[in-house]
């Protein structure tokens, strides 16, 4: 059975159940990064880790160059491997589809990070500005604390292009359900069996490819090197920063 190891059964398409989902309309994303900043502020997300990001990539040759933006966040998979593999049930799936963390339980073994095909998870460093939750794994929560109060997530709230749209995909009248129903959409790595619940509209080849490609420019590569240097010189998790 597919739901082995989930605290909540997959609910996509199950009548009478909520299933929160996000649609990212790539036609509308202007790469403004408002979502990234809003999310950082909402959770006091420290430097060096991200709950959401927007990748930027140029393609083509002068004068036919173009620019692509690719917002990324946790897919709140309906069949999340991160949950299945967590040895403590610190990460769990809520019945409305959120994949969440119990910080007080997490041992920081990073198995969930290994399990997630999307790099959606990260280890919180020792130091933050304001919030006292450290040295455990964290991730996008789909802003469950806002959603449960009837609000959209913080990144959706501020999205300038209205590229991020949030709602209950099981409700046929919701905007997300209508968008997914009437547009060509894609999810990331559907072959991993995770049943991602972040849907991309107008996913051209370039946007999807850029989601998995390494930095090409020297500028970005140098930054990557600085990033690893900060991590005691290693690309592999090394000491708890």
């Amino acid at each position: 059975m597919i739901s082995i190891g989930l605290q909540a059964e997959p609910s996509y398409g199950v009548p009478g159940k909520k299933r929160w989902a996000m649609v990212v309309d790539l036609r509308r994303c202007i790469g403004c990064m408002a979502c990234v900043a809003a999310c950082k502020a909402e959770y006091d997300v420290p430097l060096g880790v991200w709950r959401t990001t927007v990748q930027v990539k140029n393609t083509g040759k002068f004068p036919n160059a173009r620019r692509n933006f690719m917002p990324r966040l946790c897919n709140h998979c309906d069949n999340p491997p991160c949950v299945r593999n967590c040895p403590t049930a610190a990460t769990y799936k809520h019945e409305e589809g959120f994949v969440l963390q119990r910080y007080e339980r997490c041992i920081g073994c990073r198995t969930c990070m290994i399990a997630c095909p999307y790099n959606a998870r990260f280890m919180l460093p020792r130091n933050r500005t304001r919030v006292g939750i450290n040295n455990v794994v964290d991730k996008c929560t789909f802003c469950d604390h806002r959603v449960s109060q009837g609000l959209v997530p913080a990144c959706v709230q501020t999205c300038l292009g209205r590229a991020r749209i949030f709602g209950d995909i099981n409700d046929p009248n919701s905007e997300v359900a209508r968008l997914v129903g009437t547009h060509k959409t894609a999810t990331l790595k559907p072959n991993k069996g995770t049943r991602p619940q972040v849907y991309y509209i107008k996913p051209d080849r370039k946007s999807m490819e850029q989601a998995t490609s390494a930095p090409v420019s020297a500028a970005a590569r140098r930054d990557a090197e600085a990033f690893y240097r900060h991590n005691n010189g290693s690309r592999f998790f090394s000491a708890h920063l």
């Binding site: 790469g31 990748q55 930095p215 500028a219 690893y228 998790f237």
Partner: peptide, 15 residues
């Protein structure tokens, strides 16, 4: 803006 990359670490290291 040149590429903006969310840099990641591979979770499991030498330990």
């Amino acid at each position: 803006m040149f590429e903006y990359m969310p840099y990641n670490l591979a979770p499991w290291g030498v330990e």
